[in-house]
Each structure stands twice: as C-alpha cells, then as structure tokens.
Amino acid sequence: MRKRCIIVAAALLLTGCDGNLSTLTPAGPVASEIALLWWIMLAGSGAITILMIVLVSLSLGRPRATSVRFWTHGMGLAFSMVILTSLLAVGLWIGERILPRDDGAVAVQAHAWQWGWTFTHEGPDGVPVETDDMIHIPAVEPVDVLITSEDVIHAFWVPQLAGKMDAIPGRTNRARLQADEPGQYEGLCAEFCGIGHARMRFSVQAHATWPPDLTSDGAEE
C-alpha cells in the first residue's frame, strides 16, 4: 500500500506540487529555504524508514547472537543522536537566516478579525492606506508584516512566501516574507477561529515599485 502511495505521490510531484497555496512551489527565499529543508528531511526520513524495514525484516529469521550495546548504545543513542543533532543544527541555521531582523525592511500591518483581514501600508504620499482582504507588499525586497487581532486568535499564512504567524489579541507579532517577483499570491487564516474560518482567505499583491499607486478599487494603476 505504501508503495502505491509513494508512486501516486511521485506522479503528482512530477506534474508539479502546484496550487497557489503549496509550500512546495515557493515564490520567495524564505519559503524556498523551508522547502529545501523539507526535501532534505524527506530524503533522510525515507532512508531511515527503509533501514528500519530492513532491520525488522532481517529479525524474522532464526535467532542470532547479537550485542545489547549495539542496539541500545550504537543504534539507540549514537545513531539517533548524530542524525538529530545535525538536523537540529541545520534547522536552527535556516531559522536564523529567515528571521525578521532590524534592517529597515518595509513594514506592513495585518489586522485579523472574525472573519476577514484589514491591511495597512504607507501610501505614496506618506498617508496610510487601508485595504480589506488584499495585502500589498513590495516585490524582491524583504517585508515585515506586523500582525494583530481584533477578537480571537487567527494566523497569517502565505504558503508560497513564508511560514505562518499567529495573530493574537493583545500582542503584535512580526513575520518576514519576501516575493521573488511581482504578482499575486494567496494567503489564508491557519488557526481555527470559528464559523467563518474556512472562508478567511486573502490575496497578496507584490509590486515592482513601492509604495504602489492604487486606484480606488485596489488594483495597480
């Protein structure tokens, strides 16, 4: 069964892990780093799973002399520690690289409510511009989204650009995202927030010029 699943999944991967919410078709450096991390971990996990299947299969024969320490210390401690610490190091390194830092990146506000989003960015004349359910960001450069909530906990997530960050009443959270190219991306609320949760979607418009000049309907001029 697993084999068939793998074949089906592989077939899908060949046709592209498409969809505008896919973490596997990243459109920016933050999401790309995480996607790379995923492919590394998938390969490692696949190898370990096969190793375990082989070890269990080999056990199904006649009894054989075997050393206790090989299993408890060798495999249980040493083998797992080596793999886990190296993975942890890679994870922390990537985590540090994609973290928001104080480098004067453009900041945009995202305010979540039941059930929708209000986004605010600084307009061309320095006046804040408010938009509903469509967040405007500059393309190519890093953007910090300052995330707040009106009522309950929501989460801001644009899978193709970065990981998610919760919107928590009483706090302001910062998430860094970056789009490689101008264009439209899709986002959603990832934390269950009541009846309207499934419909709490939004779009991201990444602009080549910043600040963008918006017409009254929110589209770029």
Partner: peptide, 14 residues
C-alpha cells in the same frame, strides 16, 4: 522530528 524543526513547523503547523 520534522515538526520539531522550527522553520518547517512554521509551514506545516495547523
């Protein structure tokens, strides 16, 4: 173990 790695968790969480 994958989910314990912070950056991946940010994508896969929820």
């Amino acid at each position: 173990v994958m989910l314990a790695i912070v950056p991946f968790n940010w994508q896969a969480h929820d």
